[in-house]
Write a protein that binds this DNA or RNA. Sequence first.
RNA 1: GGUCCCGUAGCUCAGCUGGAUAGAGCAACUGCCUUCUAAGCAGUAGGUCUUUGGUUCGAAUCCAAACGGGAUCACCA
Length: 632
Amino acid sequence: MEEKIKKIVLDNALELFGAGVEENLIQFQQTRKDVEGDLTLVVFPFVKLLKCSPIQAGEKIGAFLKNNVSEIEKYAVINGFLNLVFSNDYWLNQLDTIYKTQNFGFSQPGSKPMMMVEYSSPNTNKPLHLGHLRNNFLGYSVSEILKANGHEVVKTQVINDRGIHICKSMLAWEKFSPLNEKGERETPANTGLKGDKLVGKYYVEFDKHFNQEAKEIIEQWQLGDFSNFSNDTKIAFVNFEKAKEGKDEKAIQGIDDKIKDLAKNQTALLRDAKEMLVKWEARDPQVYLLWTTMNSWVYEGFEVTYKKMGVDFDKLYYESETFLLGKDQVIKGLEQGVFFRKDDGSVWIDLTSDGLDEKIVLRSDGTAVYITQDIGTAIDRFSDFPNLNGMVYTVGNEQDYHFKVLFLILKKLGYTWAENCFHLSYGMVDLPTGKMKSREGTVVDADDLIDEVVETAAEMTKERGHLEGMTEDEREKLYYQIGLGGLKYYLLKVDPKKRMMFNPEESIDLTGNTGPFIQYTHARICSLIAKAGELNFKATNVELLSEEIEIIKQLALYPEIINEAATTFSPAVIANYTYELVKTYNHFYQSVKINIEPNETIKMNRLKISSEVAKTIEKSLKLLGIFAPQKM
RNA sequence: GGUCCCGUAGCUCAGCUGGAUAGAGCAACUGCCUUCUAAGCAGUAGGUCUUUGGUUCGAAUCCAAACGGGAUCACCA
């Protein structure tokens, strides 16, 4: 409709304004809710052209449009805004089009280029936590939204399964796990612990002993005993201690941290962990066996958690397999002159002309750093999927700089697809008590949180739900759908880019802008339709109420909303739209008779509207990874 | 310190490609279930859109600075 009006205005600009007009002068906006109208044209841009008041300009354009666009029934000018009112027929046609269109709002599958979405990408040394939940829900939802918008999508992750952090868990398990009566160390099988939890426990265990050993070393130094340490260490320590004199508390804290780092670097534990990493890289059979064993425990645990979260992946990449991939690319880039080598043998890229720094891409000993493998993995993915057009990396905003550098390097290496790589940079999740810190035990565990949320949903649903006729299994499933739906909605309704506050109490709320509120509206419509008897949604000629037009208006926006959510990679756009739609519908539901409407034609039309709302809710929730129960 | 992000009601968030009187939810207070699921609806109250300048017919929205908060600046990942 906007296009139609725009075209008519452009075609008749000479007659209307006595001059041609630029297309961008024609600005539409949604009519304010408190004034009558279905679409608003901003007339300010034409005032200069017409050399008259905004009101006169509006009247002139309004009269012209009313005479030339059959769907426009009337118009009114208020404060330089031309409010157009569309005819009853127009809205009936809109409703019928929405009803008849398969998957209204979605684009033809495969009509847009193939995209890869990376999300989750956890370390395999500890269980998933609240931060991973935001990451996973976002990545999964963005994938679904891109599919809805016509893209083919490959969901992926790169599993951080190697490195010093993994060795720490392994070492701690070997050193500190108690033996049972059979002489076995702790395993998921003999403890009943979930694999990722068990490995995580030993990561914490490592840290505990690590800190203890560092503390003892510092105490030894403070007594002036440097018998087991190098002269450099002694000098460094003495200098730090000197530097503390006369400083304020904050500065002293900073220096103490540096002393602690110094001590940590001297611990036997870290030395052993590093040694283990070297052995791992040399494929030492014993270390490799330990590594595959403990990783397999973690994967079993992760699988349970992913299933609970309702996310999945099409293709997995393992860092242990990809970490060397980038080295060849670096050598190639070195030949191309993209990179340069320093005297010590390390390889760098100079990004100062792009406003960034120099960045290392290969260590002096020839080993790969983090970004090296990311270069390799990206290129590898595009060769694995020849039709791949772009990639979305769902990674927290603490890595903004990393991705800026990565994309720039790929571009400089000559990969044109680098322009289609996007860092979906999401903000941290804060708790009311502050930041999550694993060391301080303030991390919210993903499994525990989901269990709690489902438990609460169960209690509330037993209290107020409509559970009659449901089996125990169906009830359990419903509690899960409501609990998890609430949690997902809570994490997805906020703009991904923004840091957000996670309030445990609010996350299980059922009222207001929440998942269960939306699910409830869906269930209520399902109940209406189930009780309505035989349905007949043929196009009819009825006089629509303003409440009904409001709903049709919002339904008609759906294609735009999906497109916006897809191009901005923002599930929040879907969440907020769905919430608005549900509010509009609930207002209608409470003030208008539906099933109890005596006029059959009007009743059917209201059910038709209700049914389209239910379908839209169901589709939207699915885009967010949330189920829409029929009864609750 | 350099770079980047953020600052809207008591709290959590929408609105930000400039447009009308800045919106929701939670919390507080009032009403509405003999009628389709009250996990609902209607209403009251709550604002210096951090501040100051600039651009503009028009600024929460764009630009600059200040203040406040955060992230990042490893031959870690």
